[in-house]
Design a protein around this nucleic acid. Structure first.
Length: 414
RNA sequence: GCGGGUAUCGCCAAGUGGUUAAGGCCCCGGAUUGUGGUUCCGGUAUACGUGGGUUCGAGUCCCACUACCCGCCCCA
């Protein structure tokens, strides 16, 4: 027996209604905000992620589905199943010269991503992300709009008790100063840090702040270190940007907490970063992560373009939302005359009604039983009805049944 | 990559070395050849994760493997 691969999952049956509902809410929320859907390929050149996501990240270093295609004789190309979608959207933005359109250029997406990790609660190897990317705006209004949409989308799903965490990493200049200061103050304690942090110290020192190791946490509490960590390295411009963003959020009545330790794992972020968390999720608590990536378009070969976006984990959203019950059909046609039943089903469907009928010539009682389980109304189309040219419409919730003369009347009554 | 747990029909689940592996749900049929959702009766199913071992005898004990779940790391 061939089974679904580890960390993958079939979505079918009762789960479908909720998945579709999440998708419809994303579509509605983002389209109303003038974002257009973008579907980029599931696989891209490996190089895109190496450069785009960053080669100091776990994603690139140990989690990518990478393989060669094209055969040994041809020019082999290394491709990778997308582990996230920002790099792909940026590639598309550059490739199609979308910077020539009037900014902002706004996109939303919803689709599968792939990371080779140990599966556990809220984490699959093939999982789905819904997200948005906004290009061409350096003003903090863009940051505010993006965060607002994240919150509004979650609210639309009935998720109101989530925490928005906010931080600014500063521009490249501030980020570097911050990095160097942290390295400097931690240097005497380097040997006491955990192995991961020793690695981070070299490759990406800001990530040290993300460490949950108890001993490392203790070190961060040391007065002089804490001072450096909490000290604002942001330049005046960056500070102003951040302050302005906060005033927009305050004005929108969006609650948030500032978390100086919030760094995020992808290399491309600068200035605003944010996460939205739920305590109900256990250790995979983040449902949404995002931030500004003003340098990424240029780094991938485009003209310098400020940008900001977020991604949400749909499987995590799914565990949090109230499940949507599958809808019943509008009609089930009960008839022993397959020709009449199939014709009527078609007519109803063309009028945008959900209708089904018996395909097995089953007994009347069985057909009605099926109808009562799957539909709101049964249309009984027996010999009497066909001969005398009417429909018997039975409301399956109340048991009430009446004779209906015309097809139009049938549509109106349901 | 490192720890802990679990594995019996489609789903839930009994079973603690001894006939032919309970039961419930779902599904199918009948009671009821044109009136369902309640009830009653009956039925289908390649179910003990895989491979070894111990034993007269293994779903049950032992070993290995695999998968899934949970935690760490990381991320959405």
């Amino acid at each position: 027996m061939i089974k679904a691969q580890r960390g993958t999952k079939d979505i079918f049956g009762d789960e479908v209604a909720t998945w579709q509902w999440i998708f419809e809410n994303a579509k509605k929320t983002f389209q109303n905000a003038d974002f257009t859907e973008i579907k980029t390929p599931i696989f891209e050149a490996t190089e895109l992620f190496n450069r785009g996501v960053g080669d100091s990240t776990d994603i690139v270093n140990k989690e990518m589905y990478t393989f060669k295609v094209g055969g040994a004789e041809k020019n082999e190309t290394s491709i990778t199943l997308r582990p996230e979608n920002t790099a792909g959207v940026v590639r598309s933005f550059i490739e199609h010269n979308l910077n020539r359109q009037s900014p902002p250029q706004k996109f939303w997406y919803f689709g599968p991503m792939f990371r080779y990790e140990r599966p556990q609660a809220g984490r699959q190897r093939q999982f789905h992300q819904a997200g948005i990317e906004l290009f061409g705006i350096k003003e903090p209004t863009a940051d505010a709009e993006v965060i607002m949409l994240a919150v509004d989308f979650l609210n639309a799903l009935g998720l109101n008790n989530l925490t928005v965490e906010l931080n600014t990493l500063g521009c490249n200049k501030c980020k570097n100063e911050y990095k160097e200061s942290i390295k400097k103050v931690l240097l005497p304690y380097l040997e006491e840090l955990c192995d991961d942090c020793k690695m981070r110290y070299k490759k990406n020192p800001l990530r040290i702040l993300d460490c949950k190791n108890e001993n490392c946490q203790k070190i961060f509490e040391i007065k002089e270190i804490k001072e450096i960590i909490l000290k604002d390295y942001v330049c005046d411009e960056c500070r102003e940007h951040f302050t302005e963003l906060q005033s927009y959020l305050d004005n929108l009545n969006i609650k948030y907490t500032i978390n100086k330790m919030l760094v995020r794992g992808l290399d491309y972020y600068n200035r605003t970063v944010f996460e939205i968390k739920s305590e109900a999720l256990g250790s995979q608590s983040a449902v949404c992560g995002g931030g500004r990536y003003d340098g990424l378009v240029e780094m991938l070969g485009g003209t310098p373009t400020p940008a900001i976006g977020f991604a949400m984990g749909v499987e995590r959203l799914y565990t949090l939302v109230d499940k949507v019950a599958p809808k019943k059909n509008d009609f089930f046609i009960v008839s022993n005359n397959s020709n009449e039943a199939i014709k009527l089903a078609r007519k109803l469907r063309l009028k945008n009604k959900r209708a089904s009928f018996d395909l097995q010539k089953r007994k009347f009682a069985k057909q009605l039983e099926k109808a009562s389980k799957t539909a709101k109304y049964a249309i009984i189309l027996g010999e009497d009805e066909i001969n005398e040219n009417y429909y018997s419409l039975k409301n399956l919730a109340t048991g009430e049944q009446k004779a209906i003369k015309t097809f139009e009347e049938l549509l109106n009554l349901s």
